[in-house]
Computed example of a mutant assay.
Amino acid sequence: MADGQKKILYIASSFGHLAAFHQPYMKWFAEQGCAVHAAAGGDRRDLQGVVQYISLPFEKSMYSQRNLAAAWRLRQLVQRERYDLISLHTSLAAFFARLALLPPCRNRPTVMNTSHGYLFDRDSARLKRMLLLGAERLTAPVTDWLLVMNQQDREIANRYRLGKNIVFTRGMGVDLARFQPATREMRQMARDSMRVQPDELVLVYAAEFSERKNQKMLIRAMQDLPDSVILLLPGEGALLEPCKMLAKELGVSGRVRFPGFVRNVEDYYAAADLCVSASRIEGLPFNVMEAMACGLPVVLSDIKGHQDLVSGGQNGILYPYDDIPAFVKAVERLLDEQTRQLMAVAAYRAAQPYGLETVYPTLTGIYQTALHGHA
């Protein structure tokens, strides 16, 4: 390492997360002359700007002993490498990484935690909220910078002083060059490739199959929607097969499509008429912002993160979480093509402030300030 060169450590639960959301910023650090290291679980991914990779045995369960082992390895790594800045991502990895820095010492690196969404909110069960909020309060003394992405998380962070410098951001930035409204020809090609008929209304929900994402509710709702409504569910995860079985049991498997993991998710937005979500909790959902940037109106569960993206029923509709009749009513309202077209224009406009070109200079400015120890 060159004399005086700054060293940056990125930490997340998986290398896949870093690859999906943070490569422009890791590259930026490298362009500033920093040595960038990445520590995460899962399969290694090549990352722009990264010169060293560290594999960590993270598991999704907060109570796994493997996570404590990962924290111990991180503590040794930080003591050995003497990083200037640690950039934390994903709730589990961020907690155990900060736990590894307790008790705080005088010469520790600057720690920036980017909260992609606390896994609790004002509606969470009391015990769950107490445990997860308690974890954040425990690690607040070593959280020099806290970046939050929605208003409810901002309120929580400020109320409980979960970081020394709390900054509200617009996420990590959506690639608006990739996600934009499809031309008529692109839309027709996408619908033809997915065997969608001209008179069918297509809903899309691109997400990991999990309890939190709640695809089962959407599948159940398909029983009450017209036969002309099609549901696209790109993604993979632990509940993919149970969701397929549920669709078959309910007799809607012909109208619910499971394409699995896809790299061309923009083609699914091109084929769709509406973006939907049944999620229980979010930070600032990329899938929704991408769909809005493609000009799709949205029908979303009324939760934090979603509330930040939908305003006054102009670009979409919020419905009470897990309320099938309310969801069905919202979709039926948007069967009207003129209503969809008006909301599509509003959705496209609402997505523009979340574009990478807008967010990138803001975040790199924050990183520059933190890197040089200013508040």
Rank of each mutant, 00 (worst) to 15 (best):
K60Q: 13
Q23M: 15
K60F: 02
L102H: 03
I54Q: 02
R66I: 12
S55D: 14
G33P: 05
R106L: 15
E31K: 11
R66G: 04
K27E: 15
R82T: 06
P104R: 05
A71H: 06
D43Q: 13
F95A: 09
G33Q: 09
R75V: 02
I54Y: 09
H89S: 11
F21A: 10
C105M: 01
D46K: 15
G33D: 09
L102K: 03
Q23Y: 14
C34G: 02
W72A: 13
Q65T: 12
G42S: 15
T110Y: 04
L102S: 00
E59V: 13
Y53C: 05
A30W: 06
L99F: 11
R44A: 13
V36F: 11
R66M: 13
V111K: 01
D46F: 00
H17K: 05
S61Y: 02
F58M: 06
R66T: 12
L92H: 01
A35M: 07
A100L: 08
S55T: 02
Q65C: 09
Y63I: 08
F15L: 14
F58Y: 13
M62T: 00
R108V: 02
Q65R: 14
V36P: 07
W28H: 15
R80T: 04
Q65V: 01
V50E: 01
A35W: 02
K27Q: 14
Y63D: 11
G42Q: 11
A20K: 12
W72Y: 15
P103K: 10
Q32D: 01
Q52W: 10
A97K: 00
G49D: 04
A30D: 05
G49V: 11
R45C: 15
D84V: 10
T110P: 06
H89R: 00
N107W: 12
K60D: 06
I54G: 00
W72L: 09
L56D: 03
P24L: 10
F29N: 02
F29P: 07
A30Q: 09
A40H: 04
V50D: 07
V50W: 02
K27D: 10
E81R: 01
S91L: 08
G33Y: 04
A100H: 06
Q23V: 15
R106A: 13
S87W: 14
L102D: 01
Y83E: 12
L99V: 10
A69K: 15
Y25A: 07
N67I: 00
N107K: 15
A19G: 08
E59S: 11
Q76L: 12
H37D: 09
I86Y: 03
S55G: 09
R108A: 08
R44D: 04
A97Y: 00
S61A: 12
F21T: 01
F96A: 00
R45W: 03
N67K: 09
A71G: 09
A71F: 04
V78C: 05
R73Q: 15
M26D: 02
W28R: 07
V111E: 00
V51A: 05
D43K: 11
